[in-house]
């Protein structure tokens, strides 16, 4: 029986910039930052109230996972905002929206009441998009 998710990958264009975005703008905690050889780095962050979910900020480099061509394709797809990786939750959407916007986070949808909940959409510094939803009461 699967009990939980503990690692998830987000492909990013630049790990230094992604670190700044996720830690200094979103307020996530750094979990692990390990140099793995020239140009390679294992970098994971966690949402503040979810220390056991590591989000791996994966660089898109030609190597084992990608060849030159697929790395270039992947970078283009990420930049174009093709991938949506998930839904983050907050206690107060309007307050979080105002704060992140003040910190320079780009929103593609302002807080909006939908039939399924209250949500906004934002992009990370690479172009990946996420939904930001207000936790439902109860």
């Amino acid at each position: 029986m699967i009990t939980k998710l503990n690692h998830v990958s987000v492909f990013v264009l630049d790990q230094d910039s992604a670190y700044n975005f996720y830690v200094n703008k979103l307020g996530f905690n750094l979990h692990t930052d390990a140099a793995m050889g020239p140009g390679m780095r294992w970098l994971t962050v966690c949402p503040p109230e979810q220390p056991d979910l590591e989000i791996s900020l994966m660089a898109i480099n030609a190597g084992m996972m990608f060849n030159e061509e697929s790395a270039a394709q992947m970078r283009a797809l990420v930049s174009a905002g093709t991938f949506g990786f998930g839904v983050f939750e907050c206690k107060d959407l309007q307050a979080t929206y105002e704060e992140l916007k003040a910190k320079g986070v780009e929103f593609t949808k302002e807080p909006t009441r939908e039939f399924y909940g209250y949500e906004a959409l934002f992009k990370d510094d690479s172009g990946n998009w996420f939904s930001l939803a207000e936790a439902k009461a109860g």
Binding site: D33, A35, M36, G37, M40, W42, M64, M65
Partner: peptide
């Protein structure tokens, strides 16, 4: 983290990136 970083990385990710072949890790 410096001497044995693979302790902190799920093997599937390490394998996909070719890190398990590096004895230093």
């Amino acid at each position: 983290l410096k001497n044995t970083p693979l302790k902190y990385i799920p093997n599937c990710f390490a394998e996909k990136n070719g890190w398990v072949n590096n004895r230093n890790f």
